[in-house]
């Protein structure tokens, strides 16, 4: 339960220095941020020790600012801060919910918003929530900066397009349209657990009590950390949002999603959970869209 020898350890204090180190060492180094996933992996000797670039002193990465009406969430923001921030709570509740649902108090005090996305475990909480919110990531590398939509960033379980010489600088959230609400619900076996199933919903109310726009992203499914439930979205988009719609989804929603069996749950139970949680998540997002008022 101890890491292999760690040859080099760097503790840059500026973004420029950090980027330089990442460019130099590339895949021969790990970026150490919150460490709540990396340190266990090092201790288990599941990943080679290599060199560590500890970016926790790069304060530039911990900023939270508005940008074009949306939010720039620095990569180093801790989940505790994300869960509590009033602006995030008002305009991107799904992300606040996901941050609050991950791990325990101590883990959230260190774990970063972006760490979970970069590890891209299929049971991760942050990526589906970010996807429902149509988030983008800002990456930086030797070739400069680029922005990538989250669903283009996470391409499969434990697979992202992050280059060996790149770092994530921030999660970007667009300005939500008026009357938008979002949420993230998580089903675990016990209070502190991986997601057996996670459901993130972001929807926008339209006139006449209709759902004008909706994005639904599921987590906890083996095939991908972010499973967009596009068929369910089509079924809901433009419809009058009422009990009959939700009741219909209860029986039908799970038929549109492939589920798997693992040590957490069976495929059948996951289908059952989809039927339970999709309506609940939609309902909660709808309520919040009323409260958002904008």
């Amino acid at each position: 339960m101890y890491p292999e020898p760690i040859e080099q350890y760097f503790q840059p204090t500026t973004l420029a220095a950090a980027l330089q180190l990442v460019a130099t060492h590339g895949s021969a180094a790990h970026i150490l941020a919150g460490g709540q996933s990396l340190v266990p992996a090092l201790k288990a000797r599941a990943v080679p020790a290599r060199a560590l670039i500890d970016i926790n002193r790069v304060t530039e990465l911990a900023t939270l600012t508005t940008r074009a009406g949306g939010l720039w969430l620095g990569a180093l923001l801790r989940l505790t801060a994300v869960a509590r921030d009033p602006l995030i709570g008002r305009t991107a509740s799904a992300l606040a919910d996901a941050a609050a649902a991950l791990g325990d108090r101590q883990v959230r005090n260190r774990a970063t918003l972006v760490g979970s996305i970069v590890w891209a475990m299929h049971w991760g909480d942050i990526a589906p929530a970010a996807a429902a919110l149509d988030a983008r990531l800002c990456l930086a590398g030797p070739a400069g900066r680029r922005e990538v939509g989250i669903e283009s960033f996470v391409v499969g379980p434990q697979l992202t397009v992050l280059g060996a010489q790149e770092m994530v600088l921030a999660l970007l959230l667009p300005a939500p349209p008026p009357h938008t609400g979002s949420c993230y619900l998580k089903h675990g076996r016990v209070v502190q657990d991986r997601a057996t199933l996670g459901i993130a919903v972001c929807l926008t109310r339209g006139p006449e009590g209709r759902c004008a726009e909706v994005r639904i992203a599921l987590g906890g499914l083996a095939q991908h950390p972010i499973c967009r439930a596009t068929q369910i979205e089509e079924r809901v988009r433009g419809q009058i949002f009422n009990a009959a719609l939700l009741e219909d989804l209860k029986h039908w929603a799970s038929t549109t999603i492939t589920t798997h069996t693992d040590e957490l749950a069976s495929a059948a139970y996951r289908r059952q959970l989809i039927g339970v949680y999709v309506p609940r998540a939609l309902e909660l997002a709808w309520q919040r869209s009323a409260e958002s008022g904008r």
Binding site: M1, I6, Y9, Q11, L32, G35, Q36, V39, P40, A41, K43, A44, L52, D54, N56, T80, D104, R105, Q106, V107, N109, R110, Q192
Partner: peptide
């Protein structure tokens, strides 16, 4: 515990917040 850092008995306060000391390297605390 072991590599997993779940049990929490190693918790200390670091720069004002509670963290699991088995999930941090000493060099980070410089």
């Amino acid at each position: 515990c072991g590599y997993e850092g779940r049990c929490g008995v190693c918790t200390v306060v670091y720069e004002g917040v509670a963290i699991k000391s088995c999930l941090m390297l000493a060099v980070q605390a410089d």
